[in-house]
Design a protein around this nucleic acid. Structure first.
Length: 478
RNA sequence: CUGGGUGUGGCGCAGUUUGGUAGCGCGCUACCUUGGGGUGGUAGAGGCCGCUGGUUCAAGUCCAGUCACUCAGACCA
């Protein structure tokens, strides 16, 4: 393929993937660092991507009957500690609040690392009867987890997310909700972000703190590392018991209801970068690109060029997010600039084109140039945006398939990773935690999920040779 | 948390070994130039060298501490 690298400032991804990533994040003006470690400014271009994700997801939440709410940012220590597993899971990375004056809090406050406890306290207050159920709540907020090592979008100390928290009369209903939301996330990733995902269940050791079961979607990045792109948890009635949430059923009996929670974060932006980006910069899926097509005038000082470009922009803007760059940078400079920023489609218009009633349309992901008559532009643009989406999805799927290795022994795993580089390892597992740990110890990959779809290809555990219970995807994780 | 790297105009770097007037490229400002992949030119502006303390007649340079960013691990959305 040997694509030509046009912007010198971006480190080649083959040379140093991590450096390539941080270069992109800065050069595409997605973020800027601040004086607090792990806390970044999400700049307008980066935030616009998040806003588009929000719009799509929020629409899906509403369509599945959810309501948005907003909990406080602070959690008193006593509340956080009510569910034992939960607090143990989060304690190491909780940020505590110190008051400015002389006030010392009897029950000190932390900044929410997640809001299960707040929702539980609230549910205990408002749920009394089966008539009050279910409650299907979601909130768009930021949370704080004091991570040791940080990376823009992938792991920051404060991050934006949505967290859904629902409560149901029966376990069946709650499980159904857990699966429904996992599917919503998969739909978002595949049909809007053009990121193929594996839907699966986490192993016991990898579950959310306090959950009965955790589901996740896992995506494979360009470098062969796995990224968890979204999670959905079934809590059973464990939290309800710990927080004393009860309702009275039709038979006048007091019962603990069943809960779920699910979330995706600004990490999705990291996933977009690492799935679609190339050595020329970012490549954005059209559904969430802040600018879907940029119009670049050629010889813009010539009479009529800018006017015609503005006219076309006006026309396309009713349906698409269009930018016309009439700055006095050279055309070549603009080409590079918008490639770096990942704009899916570029429209070039010069005097020759205008005279001929046409323009040149170029798709970012493959550099393909097409001459298009101006009166067909609207139709062709729609096709091109779809082509970009499909092209990105298929390329990512191809990469994943190329990097998915079925193995029956740990030696095979080591061999496959050495031969072909990091990727997903499919292997059977007996279900024992010792084997899970041993695989990680021997091969470096950890369990990502037990896929919901996928067929057993061996009867024995990849590690111990005992009868296998599950097919597991393994990988190195971000 | 462990181990490496880096901090000098907005950005990227040189200068630190051997202490002695802060430099380069890009960007920025003004004017001109510019037809299809970061145009070319002329003239300008901009820095108490991450921070704190120490050694010295003198510190970007030496010493101690501290903070941040970054890479590789372990942990995590």
């Amino acid at each position: 393929m040997a694509e030509k690298k046009m912007v010198e400032d971006i480190t080649s991804m083959d040379e140093d993937f991590a450096k390539w990533y941080t270069d992109i994040v800065k050069k595409a003006e997605l973020i800027e660092y601040t004086s607090v470690k792990g806390c970044m400014v999400i700049r307008p271009y980066g935030y616009a991507i998040w806003e588009n994700i929000q719009k799509i997801l929020d629409g899906m939440f509403k369509a599945t009957g959810h309501e948005n709410v907003c909990m406080p940012m602070f959690i008193p220590e006593s509340l956080l500690q009510k569910e034992k597993d939960h607090v143990e899971g989060f304690a190491p990375e909780v940020a505590w609040v110190t008051m400015g004056g002389s006030e010392v809090l009897e029950d000190r406050l932390c900044v929410r690392p997640t809001s299960e406890t707040l929702f539980c306290e609230h549910y205990a207050n408002i749920i009394h009867s089966y008539r009050d159920l279910p409650k299907l709540y979601n909130q768009w907020v930021s949370v704080v987890r004091w991570e040791k090592t940080t990376r823009p979008f992938l792991r920051s100390r404060e991050f934006l997310w949505q967290e859904g928290h629902t409560i149901h009369a029966t376990a069946e209903e709650a499980i159904e909700e857990t699966e429904r939301m996992l599917n919503v996330y998969a739909d978002l990733c595949e049909n809007y972000l053009a990121i193929p995902v594996i839907k699966g269940k986490k192993t016991e050791s990898d579950k959310f703190a306090g959950a009965v079961s955790t589901y996740a979607i896992e995506a494979l990045m360009h470098d062969g590392k796995a990224l968890q792109a979204g999670t959905s948890h079934f809590f059973g009635d464990g939290f309800a018991k710990a927080f004393d949430i009860t309702y009275t059923n039709k038979e006048n009996k007091k019962i603990n209801p069943f809960q779920t929670s699910w979330g995706v974060t600004t990490r999705l932006i990291g996933a977009i970068i690492m799935t679609h980006g190339d050595n020329n910069g970012l490549v954005l899926p059209p559904a969430v690109a802040p600018v879907q097509a940029v119009i670049i005038p050629i010889a813009q000082h010539k009479e009529g060029v800018l006017e015609k470009c503005a006219e076309i922009k006006e026309k396309l803007s009713s349906k698409y997010r269009i930018k016309l760059d009439d700055s006095d940078n050279s055309a070549g400079w603009k080409f590079s600039e918008y490639e770096m920023k990942g704009v899916p489609v570029r429209i070039e218009m010069g005097p020759r084109d205008i005279e001929a009633g046409q323009c040149v349309i170029v798709t970012r992901h493959n550099g393909e140039r097409t001459v298009v008559a101006l009166d067909e532009l609207e139709v062709v643009l729609e096709q091109k945006l779809k082509e970009v989406h499909d092209g990105l999805y298929n390329k990512a799927l191809e990469n994943r398939e190329k990097r998915t290795y079925s193995c029956t022994t740990t030696d095979e795993i080591i061999e496959a990773l050495k031969e072909n580089g990091d990727g997903f390892v499919k292997a059977m597992w007996c279900g024992d935690e010792e084997c899970e740990d041993a695989v990680k110890e021997k091969t470096g990959v950890c369990s990502r999920c037990i896929p919901l779809e996928g067929e057993a290809f061996s009867d024995v555990c990849v590690c111990c040779g005992k009868p296998a219970k599950h097919l597991v995807y393994w990988g190195k994780a971000y």
